[in-house]
C-alpha cells in the first residue's frame, strides 16, 4: 500500500460535553477521491474542520510526512492542504478577482499567481465573465465554484470539500460536481464530505459512511452503492 497523503488515527472532536466525533480512523492516498457520507449531525463537518485545524481535536492527524495536530490552521494552505468551508465561505463584499487573490494570500510569486488565476478561469469560465462582480451577488452555485477556485489558488495537494451541494438547486449541484470531476481529473487528491450520497459516491473511488460520530462502513464506491444498508439509509431506496 502506498503511503497515505492524509491519515487520521483515533480522531475525537468534542464540543463541551458532547462528542461529535468518537474516535475514527481513515486515510486518503495521493490522487484519490474519497468521500465521507452520512446524515446531518453524523460528525462529517466536525471531522473536516478538525483536519483543517479549525477546531480542537484529539488523536493523530498525519499529513504527508508530518503530524499536523499542532500546526495552526493558517499554515496549512502553505503546506498544500486547502479547505473549502461549509456554506461556501466566500468574501461576499470582495469581487470575484479579489476573492481569488485572497486564495493566494500566502504566496509571493506574482507571475505564478497570475498564471493560476488564468488556470482557474479556464476551469471555471463563468467566474471569468464575472471577475469584477462582487461575490455576494453571485448565485449559490457560482459562489461554490468561486470557493473551490479560491482554494485552488493556493496550489493545494489535498482539497477538503465540505458539503459543496448544500443549498444549491439540482441543476447547480450537477455543475458543481462537474467542476469537482474536472479538478480531480487534473490529479488533485480530494476528501469530499457530502450528504448527497449518490452524487458523492459517483465521483469518488472510495467512501466512508459516518453515523453518530463513528465510521460504520468503509468500502469502494461501487460496493457502497450496492450495499443494502447504504441504499436504504442514504439513497432513498
Amino acid at each position: 500500500m502506498a503511503l497515505a497523503l492524509l491519515e487520521a488515527l483515533n480522531l475525537h472532536v468534542r464540543y463541551g460535553g458532547i462528542s461529535a466525533v468518537k474516535g475514527i480512523s481513515f486515510a486518503v492516498e495521493e490522487n484519490e477521491i474519497v468521500c465521507l457520507i452520512g446524515a446531518n449531525g453524523a460528525g462529517k463537518t466536525s471531522t473536516l474542520k478538525a483536519l483543517a485545524r479549525m477546531i480542537p481535536s484529539s488523536g493523530e492527524i498525519h499529513y504527508r510526512t508530518e503530524r499536523i495536530e499542532a500546526v495552526p490552521s493558517h499554515d496549512l494552505i502553505g503546506r498544500g492542504l486547502a479547505l473549502v468551508p461549509e456554506g461556501r465561505g466566500i468574501f461576499a463584499r470582495l469581487t470575484v478577482a479579489e476573492n481569488l487573490a485572497m486564495g493566494a494570500y500566502h504566496r509571493r510569486d506574482a507571475t505564478g499567481i497570475a498564471d493560476d488565476v488564468e488556470r482557474v478561469f479556464a476551469l471555471l469560465p463563468r467566474l471569468k465573465e464575472r471577475k469584477a462582480q462582487v461575490a455576494g451577488t453571485l448565485s449559490g452555485g457560482e459562489q461554490q465554484m468561486l470557493a473551490i477556485g479560491r482554494a485552488l489558488m493556493g496550489r493545494p495537494k489535498l482539497l477538503l470539500l465540505d458539503e459543496p451541494s448544500m443549498g444549491l438547486a439540482p441543476l447547480m449541484v450537477e455543475k458543481v460536481f462537474e467542476v469537482i470531476r474536472a479538478v480531480a481529473a487534473e490529479g488533485m487528491t480530494i476528501l469530499l464530505v457530502e450528504q448527497n450520497a449518490r452524487l458523492a459516491l459517483e465521483v469518488c473511488s472510495r467512501g466512508y459512511v459516518m453515523e453518530s460520530g463513528l465510521i460504520t462502513l468503509a468500502d469502494n464506491s461501487a460496493a457502497l452503492l450496492a450495499d443494502s444498508r447504504v441504499r436504504a439509509a442514504y439513497l432513498g431506496e
Binding site: 479549525m54 468551508p85 465561505g89 468574501f91 485572497m102 482554494a151 493556493g154
Partner: peptide, 24 residues
Amino acid sequence: SRIGRAWVAIREDEIAAKASGINT
C-alpha cells in the same frame, strides 16, 4: 496593503480567512 486585505477578509468570514492562510 496585504494587511488591509487580510482585515477585510477577517471582517467577511473568519474561517475562510484562516483557510486562505491568514493568521487571524
